[in-house]
Design a protein around this nucleic acid. Sequence first.
DNA 1: CTCATCAATGGAACCGTTCCCATGCTAGTC
DNA 2: GACTAGCATGGGAACGGTTCCATTGATGAG
Lengths: 340, 340
Amino acid sequence: MSIHSPQRATILEVAREAGASKTSVSRYFGGERERLSRELQGRIESAAQRLGYRPNQMARGLKGGRSRLIGMLVADIRNPFSVAVMHGVEQACRERGYSLLVCNTDNDPAQEREHLALLTSYRVEGLVINAAGSPDRELQALVEQGMPLVMLDRELGEVEAEVVGLDNARALDLALDHLQVQGYGELLYLSEPPEQASPRQARLMRFHQGVAARGLAGEAHCQALKDRETLQRAIGDFLARPGTAPRALLCANGNATLAATRALQTLGARLGDTGLLGIDELDWCALVGPGITTLAQPTEAIGRAAVECLMRRRECGDHTTPSRRVHFQASLIPRGSTRR
Amino acid sequence: MSIHSPQRATILEVAREAGASKTSVSRYFGGERERLSRELQGRIESAAQRLGYRPNQMARGLKGGRSRLIGMLVADIRNPFSVAVMHGVEQACRERGYSLLVCNTDNDPAQEREHLALLTSYRVEGLVINAAGSPDRELQALVEQGMPLVMLDRELGEVEAEVVGLDNARALDLALDHLQVQGYGELLYLSEPPEQASPRQARLMRFHQGVAARGLAGEAHCQALKDRETLQRAIGDFLARPGTAPRALLCANGNATLAATRALQTLGARLGDTGLLGIDELDWCALVGPGITTLAQPTEAIGRAAVECLMRRRECGDHTTPSRRVHFQASLIPRGSTRR
DNA sequence: CTCATCAATGGAACCGTTCCCATGCTAGTC
DNA sequence: GACTAGCATGGGAACGGTTCCATTGATGAG
């Protein structure tokens, strides 16, 4: 009859209604049903039914410390790649009886810190982190306290935390090979600023290495993508530069691909004549002009793998196990944007 | 020193360390800081700092029932529209000191039911529902128990629950007016099956009304979009039909727009010659061909409004207040796909 | 000087679970 | 027939907070 918060039945009321003890009811809902006599089971079942009883997870989490919650920090929830990975994480969690508490940080370090604190205050039993910034100190502290932690596509200092993500080196090799075979000789790499230890650095580095190894000309433009003018000028300059070799753009992620496509369209460049290859497969890549060639990441698998790592950590309990790296391979989806 | 779950400090330890009582520490963190002397505040602050203390939300939620959690049910997390709304919901929650527990149901009624149970077991203080199916009975029960509930873009029987969403009738009028002005005379409406009380019904109905009122020819194709063959055949038939009036496709949501664009491309139809107008603005609509005309929804605003409704319910506590409908207006973004 | 008031603080009950430890009972063993 | 084993069940102490109420000392009014 309370007005403010819906008053659910408690275990005690069910016990009374069923003529049993709260211990028995607790057993019934805690997965120890077999220990109860058929008859008692029946009484509890129907009593619970009548009262619309559901165990209070808050109280549960309190006593045994098992909140059955996994926390996830997402850098940008509006990025389809992140969402796809999150989907995999959620599925895997659910299969194992966990729920997922997701926090979006909008790429803001302050929010990262804040949300991390929030998640730990709900006593999540594991953490999947996909953050651009670096609440490194906080994360280190958590790991040392024994919190199972998985980094998505990003390393964390020298801390013992699992890393799950794309094999960035191989992915870039794949991209560069394709562009070379298709005859593009001068490349412009587009990325958001590769601050800190993000995979952006790995990709950028491999780009420079790979370009050199293949005897191609390559340069990188690493600026925030929001500023369309700057980007457009950079691409315009690149295309207008003297030289005869066909030119191509290589985009470090979905956002970059989107920005590049916009810029090329504004500049009136024809896809294919100007090559375009993006990392991350998006819904619409097949639809623009002759189609945009992409490097697809196995997003669901990455998400699932993250949860698996978490569970392994939990089980063997032991945070001295050497941390592992799980690398997935990208697959090339060739389309018209890299066909001349 | 526990291995399994990271052992955070408790309020009691902080109290001891600070030479204070639990009560005072509780007050310090519970927003009653002013009641404590400057000096005691200092002692608690530094003690908490030293121990890395954070209050346990689980325990908090137990007494007093304030979990500070809002639950949200999302029908399809991979739909950018849903994500955008969710983003608004999350922002608004955070501003008010709530966290958001999101569950994705993948459009599966079984998961809807299951996740709903899950959310209530965490004693969420309010619920934002965006579900295609209908756990109507469960929702009704919750409302009757006094749970603040907001439906996104979908009504719920005769239950007193707020509804927040697009003004579907006006949106369709806007779309039809535009198509008529641009000279399209025969229209095909594309939607997923409008089962149950979804807004899809409202849109479909208004489409038929509006077409009749304007003296246009209109028909609807309402099938699952996954089956590309069927869709393509339907569109092919529509375009091949004898008649002289220019034809246009009207897509009920982002997914339909995507599917329609694919089909048109496969059929080799030229956008503009064949009109195309989609509800929901997507990243890529400006990039495909001459651009796809869309009806943009104020997604963030919708999300925020949902939370506001929730809070209003909570405050005035009283679940006899007549439920309200908050309708937002769509805005037309004209592009080449409706220019002949 | 006494008493009511008020601010600062602490004690203890309670929230809804889980889980350890009884308790009573039946059945099997020697 | 006494003893033990094992099963079904219940009692009650945590868990980490919040919150009501009591206590203390200082202050000001009568």
